[in-house]
Design a protein around this nucleic acid. Structure first.
Lengths: 130, 130
DNA sequence: GAAGACAGGGATAAATTTATCAGTAAGTGA
DNA sequence: TCACTTACTGATAAATTTATCCCTGTCTTC
């Protein structure tokens, strides 16, 4: 697979950067959320998320796997069957995601209003001013 | 100022996305951290962070301001003096950043090792295998 | 035998974010 | 007057992340 080579070195001396490196992909939290809910086969995750291209799900799954957030169980036989699970390490990120999730839910309205006011292209019809 | 116009609509229906929209810039957590420590003038923040270009500090300060994470106090007279402070809303993000920060600190070593193994361009000499 | 399920990757484009360079404005002090 | 401070912005390039399109391999079912 083509691997992008960083040009600007990242400073992992900062905790936030470290955390973002692990869970900071567009679909990573969604993927982790799926797996928490027991949706753990790539095709199912793809179906569940819907908007994300299959290719991207694969990429992010792979990264999560390489960063040991997920473990991979491959079943023999066909059709192929693979299941991802959270590792012990992976479970330690759940509180983070949970915290972001609930903060975001609480402040979704406010943030959406500001985004709309700034004329951003957001998809949150329910929050549009009436 | 040139404002980038999104082409792909963002779905603010998801809490994590909302949170990332507010604190998800490369230097935003650093900026917020500075301000928490009482470093609240743009030039001081820039000095304190060092690696980030001044232009980018300004951009991200502006966004944080527009998202009402920061308030802005402008002093009359010259040389110009401006101070940013956390708003009440801004203070609600501190636990999030704090959580990421401490998670990252705890797992920095592991993450750095994996990044190095993956041959990424990281700047964390202290973590290189000996 | 053709078609489908399933996991995954190659090559490349598009989108988005961050960086670079240089300039504006309005003073102060040498 | 010249250099320096401070905050801020325009225009554009570079870096990075996501998306698109299409292909491989291997079995199972129609």
């Amino acid at each position: 697979m083509y691997v992008y080579e960083n040009k600007i070195p990242q400073d992992l001396g900062d905790g936030v950067t470290v955390a973002m490196k692990v869970i900071g992909g567009k679909w990573k939290p969604c993927i982790i959320d799926c797996i928490t809910k027991g949706i753990n086969r790539p095709s199912c995750i793809h179906q569940a998320i819907g908007q994300a291209p299959r290719r991207v799900i694969n990429q992010q799954l792979k990264e999560l796997y390489e960063y040991e957030v997920l473990s991979k169980k491959m079943y023999p036989g066909y059709p192929l069957k693979v299941e991802y699970e959270l590792t012990e390490f992976g479970k330690t990120v759940l509180p983070l995601i949970q915290a972001m999730q609930s903060w975001g839910e609480v402040h979704a309205q406010k943030v959406a209003e500001i985004a709309i006011r700034r004329n951003e292209n957001v998809l949150a019809e329910e929050y549009r001013e009436h």
